[in-house]
């Protein structure tokens, strides 16, 4: 069946919006292609955001969604007095501050390395990318066993080398940093591929010209490589930052937010409040505040780094 047969002939006229002229047939086709995505976005993104916005001003409880009372700004006021939010925000800030440079550096470093290595290149790409393909829950379980205090492989090695066993995930002073390391290990492979793609698009003649001018490798990296991949770096940094702000699964699986709240992050706290404690109204209010915070940080960073102006 031809598309013309189901659409009226006059649909294929041309029309203008501003200075741009459009073909109706192509526009309809484009809209049809985008429609499933739009429908899914409405159902699973915009509708939940809208519902969440409504619930944020109510006392909605998961078990009493048929009896919801408007409470005005009570949930927001409560959020500003909640010591658990302060703790979760602090943990999230530490996590973001640590994981972003670590993961960014690791992914860029690996990409630069792989861009130069000629032997086993495909194998190495796979090796570094495999953690990305594994389920977060699976890798979390794996690391829980590796980091176990009494019988974990890492503590066994530490003891063999003459060191003292470490608490790792059971030690409130170490648990969050363990999760930082595990998250960076798991996520770096993905950004590495993005960086690798950007590195391979840098014209070789730039490096040849720099070599003729006797620029060192480090000078080439600083003055050619980094400026050339700046838009990619901004993109990676912002997506990494947003991903870091959303950290939830690893603490949920590995520590349950403990020990002593040392790995309770904002996303996990929002989940816990809404799902475990069924306080949907309060959870929605925190989620909105947190979304606003992430958006502000992301936009601010984008402006700061000038990501918009780089082509």
């Amino acid at each position: 069946m031809q598309i013309e047969s189901i659409l009226p002939a006059r649909s294929f006229a041309r029309f203008k919006i501003g200075r741009t002229e459009y073909n109706t047939k192509e526009s309809v086709s484009g809209i049809l292609f985008a429609l499933p995505c739009i429908v899914l976005s409405i159902i699973f993104v915009f509708l939940p955001i809208f519902i969440s916005l409504m619930y944020a001003f109510t006392d909605a409880n998961m078990l009493r969604l048929d009896r919801v009372t408007f409470v005005g700004l009570e949930n927001f006021a409560r959020a500003f007095e909640d010591p658990d939010i302060v703790n979760a925000l602090r943990n999230t800030a530490i996590f973001v501050a640590c994981v972003t440079p670590l993961q960014f550096g690791a992914s860029l470093g690996l990409a630069v390395l792989l861009n130069r290595v000629r032997h086993c290149n495909t194998f190495l790409r796979w090796a570094f990318f495999i953690p990305v393909m594994l389920s977060l829950a699976v890798t979390s379980m794996l690391w829980m066993n590796l980091l176990n205090v009494q019988e974990g492989l890492i503590n066994t090695f530490i003891e063999i080398l003459g060191g003292e066993r470490q608490g790792f995930l059971e030690d409130p002073t170490q648990a969050l940093y363990c999760i930082v390391f595990i998250s960076a290990w798991q996520g770096a492979g993905y950004q590495m591929l993005i960086f690798l793609s950007a590195l391979q698009n840098i014209p070789k003649d730039l490096y040849e010209a720099a070599s003729i001018d006797q620029a060192s490798k480090w000078q080439q990296f600083i003055h050619i490589t980094l400026p050339s991949i700046k838009p990619t770096m901004v993109f990676v940094l912002i997506t990494m930052l947003i991903g870091a702000f959303r950290i939830c699964i690893q603490p949920m699986v590995m520590t349950g937010g403990g020990p002593l709240g040392s790995t309770m992050t904002m996303s996990y706290y929002i989940y816990k409040t809404g799902i475990d404690y069924r306080d949907v109204g309060y959870s929605s209010a925190i989620a909105l505040l947190y979304t606003f915070l992430i958006a502000t940080v992301s936009l601010g960073l984008r402006k700061l780094l000038g990501g918009d102006n780089q082509k």
């Binding site: 069946m1 031809q2 598309i3 013309e4 047939k25 192509e26 309809v28 086709s29 049809l32 292609f33 429609l35 499933p36 429908v39 899914l40 159902i43």
Partner: peptide, 19 residues
């Protein structure tokens, strides 16, 4: 173009059916 449109319709129908 016609094929593209047909594919778009099929994709849309498939998406709606899966939903």
């Amino acid at each position: 173009m016609a094929n593209k449109s047909k594919s778009a319709l099929l994709f849309l129908l498939g998406g709606l059916m899966s939903l």
